[in-house]
């Protein structure tokens, strides 16, 4: 018996959301009195022994160029093979874009119950029950997994990473991967910017900013804080900002440590995408803006007057 964590990589590096999954998986293993092991597919440039820092004893690798691109069909089969060979009873994914594609396939392959969007460690006192987000962050469901093998997909930014200086044993796993039926023609990544889904701080603007020419207050603050930028749906729909910045019910759902909303009223559809943020700051001149009800800190005031002063204060704080 063991706990197996899938470590998702991008261009040879393990994603932060997977390190959260590793820390989480190590805790689950501790809870069950067993060992935590990990699997990585494709070519990795990171030193995988350092995965031991996150509580992982062994890292199984299948180092194959063909696996640098994620194809859920090929990946699920390989993960199932490793899981079976080490007798994994719990398999952990990050509920990130790739996790959402692979975990359901693995669930069918191993006939293992899946809880996606988990936000806490399983309750194993009476069965195996995992708390997950439902109704777009407006509630939680406690879901019991009734199968022998269990799969959990952990929501990004919902479990803190803890580290030690332990090292993991890196073990190549001998097998052959199927040829992928999905041919990747191109990838297009925003370079030099923090991916919104992985950002710890997000600065976001809404219609209250009146036009794309006023976005410097969002981008300047984001730069100072090492934050990603986001926007509300009307802003993306008016092409003031690119669509991938849209957070909300129909855009991206995020859970940063700090969500800083400028000139966004906070319609229920917007809140559905950001209500898992740990701290929410709202700057809006309308004291009746619904967003203030969901906020931790706020200023009722004109962003055009308030924001330059905030940016100055942050500069002072950061010593720039």
């Amino acid at each position: 018996m063991s706990v197996l964590i899938f470590l998702d990589q991008s261009e040879g590096q393990i994603k932060k959301s997977s390190l959260e999954a590793a820390s989480y998986g190590a805790k689950v293993a501790q809870q069950l009195g067993t060992s935590a092991q990990a699997i990585v597919l494709g070519n990795i440039t990171d030193d995988l022994a350092t995965i031991g820092n996150y509580g992982i004893g062994k890292v199984h690798t299948i180092n194959n160029d063909a696996l640098n691109n994620m194809d859920a069909q090929v990946y699920a089969k390989l993960i199932a093979e490793v899981a079976t060979s080490i007798g994994a009873k719990v398999i952990i994914f990050s509920n990130n874009f790739n996790g959402k594609a692979i975990a359901p396939r693995l669930s069918v392959r191993l006939k293992a119950g899946l809880v996606s969007g988990a936000v806490a460690l399983p309750d194993t006192t009476n069965g195996f029950t995992v708390k997950k987000n439902v109704f777009s962050g407006k509630a939680f469901a406690n879901v019991t997994i009734n199968t022998d093998i269990k799969i959990i997909a952990l929501n990004p930014n919902s479990f803190s990473i803890t580290t030690t200086d332990a090292k993991a044993e890196v073990l190549p796993f001998a097998t052959t991967a199927d040829a992928s039926k999905v041919q990747v023609i191109s990838t297009d990544k925003v370079v030099g910017e923090i991916p919104l889904s992985e950002a710890e701080i997000v600065v976001s603007g809404g219609r209250g900013l009146k036009g794309p020419e006023n976005w410097a207050m969002v981008t300047d603050l984001a730069k100072l804080l090492g934050a990603a930028t986001a926007c509300s749906r009307p802003v993306a729909d008016s092409d003031w900002r690119p669509h991938h910045e849209h957070v909300g019910q129909t855009g991206l759902a995020i859970a940063p440590n700090l969500y800083f909303a400028i000139g966004i009223s906070g319609a229920i559809q917007h809140l559905a995408g950001v209500n898992r943020s740990k701290v929410i700051v709202v700057i809006n001149k309308d004291p009746e803006a619904p967003f203030f009800k969901a906020a931790d800190y706020g200023i009722v005031g004109d962003a055009f007057e308030v924001m330059p002063k905030i940016i100055d204060a942050v500069k002072k704080l950061k010593g720039v």
Binding site: S10, K15, N69, N96, F97, N98, K181, V182, Q183, V184, I185, S186, T187, D188, K189, V190, E193, I194, P195, L196, S197, E198, H244
Partner: peptide, 11 residues
């Protein structure tokens, strides 16, 4: 959609 961008696939 992939983290921080997009990927074009042919299937």
């Amino acid at each position: 959609e992939i983290e921080g961008g997009e990927e074009t696939d042919k299937v």
